[in-house]
Measured scan of single mutants.
Amino acid sequence: MPEGSASLQLAVGDRVVYPNQGVCRVSAIDVKEVAGQKLTFVTMRREEDGAVVMVPEGKVLAIGVRKVASAE
């Protein structure tokens, strides 16, 4: 991610809310080559049905992904 860009610090195992998809758990953060460029992807699995969603790390905030609020 370019320096100075806002990002959401995620780790494998974090629970997040993905708008219009529901609650997901981060299952992987991997670098993949797409069209000759190396990009970091956040892979999330929906808790409702296990569907897998992959989002480029740089788009996580723009999409509206946020961490699940704690009970505290």
Rank of each mutant, 00 (worst) to 15 (best):
Val52Asn: 04
Ala51Gln: 10
Val60Glu: 03
Leu39Gly: 05
Leu39Thr: 12
Met1Gly: 12
Val16Leu: 08
Ala69Asp: 14
Glu3Ile: 11
Pro56Leu: 08
Val52Gly: 03
Thr40Glu: 02
Leu10Phe: 08
Glu3Asp: 12
Ala11Pro: 01
Ser5Gly: 12
Lys32Ile: 15
Val17Leu: 14
Lys67Cys: 15
Gly4Leu: 11
Gly13Gln: 01
Ala69Phe: 09
Ala71Ser: 12
Leu61Trp: 14
Glu33Leu: 12
Leu8Thr: 08
Ala6Asn: 13
Met44Cys: 03
Lys32Asp: 03
Lys59Ile: 15
Thr40Arg: 14
Glu57Asn: 05
Arg45Gly: 02
Val23Gln: 03
Val52Lys: 06
Leu10Ser: 01
Ala51Asp: 05
Val65Pro: 03
Gly58Ala: 14
Lys32Leu: 14
Lys38Val: 09
Val65Arg: 02
Ala51Tyr: 09
Glu57Lys: 07
Tyr18Phe: 14
Ala69Leu: 11
Pro2Asn: 12
Gln37Trp: 06
Gln21Glu: 08
Ser5Trp: 08
Glu48Met: 10
Val17Met: 13
Ser7Val: 11
Ala71Phe: 10
Val52Leu: 14
Ser5Asp: 10
Arg46Tyr: 03
Ala69Cys: 15
Pro19His: 06
Val68Asn: 04
Val17Arg: 06
Pro19Arg: 06
Val23His: 06
Thr43Ser: 08
Cys24Ala: 02
Ala62Val: 09
Phe41Met: 14
Ala71Gln: 10
Val53Ser: 05
Ser70Phe: 09
Thr40Cys: 00
Gly36Thr: 03
Tyr18Cys: 06
Gly36Ile: 02
Ala35Gln: 09
Ile29Arg: 02
Val12Ala: 03
Ile63Thr: 08
Glu47Phe: 04
Val17Lys: 04
Asp49Val: 03
Met44Ala: 01
Ala11His: 11
Ser70Gly: 10
Lys67Met: 10
Gly50Asp: 08
Ala6Val: 13
Glu72Trp: 08
Arg66Asp: 12
Gly4Phe: 08
Ala51Glu: 09
Arg66Gln: 15
Gly4Cys: 05
Ala69Gly: 13
Met44Ile: 04
Val31Phe: 07
Lys32Ser: 07
Val31Lys: 06
Asn20Cys: 02
Asn20Ile: 05
Arg15Gly: 03
Gln9Phe: 09
Gly36Cys: 00
Ile63Glu: 15
Lys38Ser: 09
Arg45Leu: 14
Gly50Ala: 03
Tyr18Arg: 02
Leu10Gly: 02
Gly64Asn: 05
Leu61Cys: 04
Val53Glu: 03
Pro56Trp: 10
Val68Trp: 06
Pro2Lys: 10
Val42Lys: 00
Val60Arg: 02
Arg45Ile: 15
Ser70Val: 10
Lys38Ala: 07
Val65Lys: 03
Val65Tyr: 05
Asp30Val: 13
Asp30Pro: 01
Gln9Glu: 10
Ala62Gly: 07
Ile63Tyr: 10
Val53Asp: 02
Val34Lys: 05
Val31Tyr: 08
Lys38Phe: 13
Val53Leu: 15
Asp49Asn: 07
Val65Cys: 07
Val16Ser: 00
Arg46Leu: 03
Gly50Thr: 02
Ala6Lys: 12
Gly4Ser: 13
Leu8Ile: 09
Phe41Trp: 14
Arg66Trp: 13
Glu57Val: 09
Gln37Lys: 14
Gly58Cys: 06
Met44Arg: 00
Thr40Asp: 01
Val60Asp: 04
Asn20His: 10
Lys67Tyr: 13
Glu48Trp: 14
Val34Leu: 07
Val60Lys: 02
Arg46Ser: 06
Ala69Ser: 13
Gly22Lys: 05
Pro2Ser: 12
Gly50Glu: 04
Ala28Cys: 01
Pro19Asn: 06
Gly22Leu: 04
Leu10Thr: 01
Leu61Asn: 12
Leu8Trp: 12
Gly58Phe: 10
Ile29Met: 04
Val60Trp: 11
Pro56Glu: 15
Val17Gly: 03
Glu33Cys: 05
Ala6Trp: 09
